[in-house]
Design a protein around this nucleic acid. Structure first.
Lengths: 200, 200
DNA sequence: GTCTATATTGAGATAGAC
DNA sequence: GTCTATCTCAATATAGAC
């Protein structure tokens, strides 16, 4: 089917999201103008409003898209563990999953953790619920390890949050051409996490 | 000495910093206007320029003030340790210090970690140097513990960054009226850190 | 679906009166 | 030291031509 000249909706849409993610990660939501995003896409500012009703919704869509992808990828990964896998095996797998997923999309991670303040209260609440869903998946692993007597935990909830903060912090300094290969970094972090949950 | 009416420079200056810190922590640097800050202080926008040459310098002063205070407080605390204190004792002390210092000034912590993107390159470089000075103090403790055979570390640098990320993450969820008292939280985190460095 | 043009609003910063 | 007034510029968002 021939398209009308100048009709590029199916390609422009994703480009708007990609450009917005890149720019907001670098400069922050409030510091980025719709004009800048349009320029990056290669259209005029007015054209963006075919793809989002307003700037706030654009931000929310980016952040919700990231959390949806995180939960979907996590569900797929968790579906792959065997029923007889120990809590420790599942913990290691979670650590590797978290590191891989977050390092593969640094811009989305940055935006999702830094721009919560710029969401409306309703949008903020929606994202917080998704974030809690994800945290709960680690907490379940910790609880099962504690119940089995394999982990030594003082406080499951705090340990969950502490581990996630430790792992996500990796995104602030990791460079692809850095000193260590990713597999080695994964080994170091699984070791740190094992220590934190009392597994030697 | 009687002052001229309307002359409040010695009191307005700190108020400008306090108001800016509060507002920027809540809404982000780019989202806060000089007019909002002025309103919070109780003056007109033009009056702010008696206390800062521009908005960028105001941000930098806030962030550098925080890092200066951090390093000064750390120097004071490190000066209090006895020469015969073990690496483990000094590690525990660092953890408690970091938690206390950061929880006492959540706004400054928030601004210092979130607004790095909004600094000019020169100002950014200056702050990064201060941050590295602080991280080095933990790394020195880890190195001494490893050298003494008391800590089991795979990678000192990464462990340093991982511990600091874990501890600072606390500021994102801690509430004064929360489930646990601060002393108990400190105990949990010292336990997590001990585990991460291979001390049972 | 994208453009140009524009309505409206508010930003950072400065000048000069008091 | 603070105010009022203002310059200059750029923001979000919309309207209507093509």
């Amino acid at each position: 089917m021939a398209r009308k000249t100048g009709s590029h909706g199916d390609i422009t849409g994703p480009k708007v999201h990609a450009a917005a993610l890149r720019l907001i990660a670098r400069h922050g939501f409030a510091a980025v103008s719709m004009r800048q995003i349009a320029h990056e896409v290669g259209v005029q500012a007015g054209a963006l409003y075919r793809y989002t009703p307003d700037k706030q919704t654009l931000l929310f869509d980016l952040m919700r898209g990231h959390m949806d992808a995180l939960l979907a990828a996590r569900a797929a990964a968790a579906g792959g563990v065997a029923v007889f896998d120990t809590p420790l095996i599942r913990l290691d797998e979670f650590v590797r999953f978290h590191i891989r997923f977050h390092l593969e999309r640094p811009d989305a991670v940055f935006v999702s953790y830094m721009e919560l303040r710029n969401l409306t209260p309703e949008n903020f609440a929606a994202l917080e619920a998704l974030r809690r869903d994800y945290e709960d998946q680690l907490e379940v692993i910790l609880l099962s390890g504690a119940a089995a007597g394999e982990f030594g935990l003082t406080d499951t909830k705090i340990t969950t949050l502490a581990i996630i903060a430790m792992l996500t912090g990796l995104t602030t300094w990791y460079r692809e051409d850095g000193r260590l290969p990713l597999t080695q970094i994964e080994r170091i972090y699984t070791g740190l996490v094992r220590g934190a949950v009392g597994v030697s």
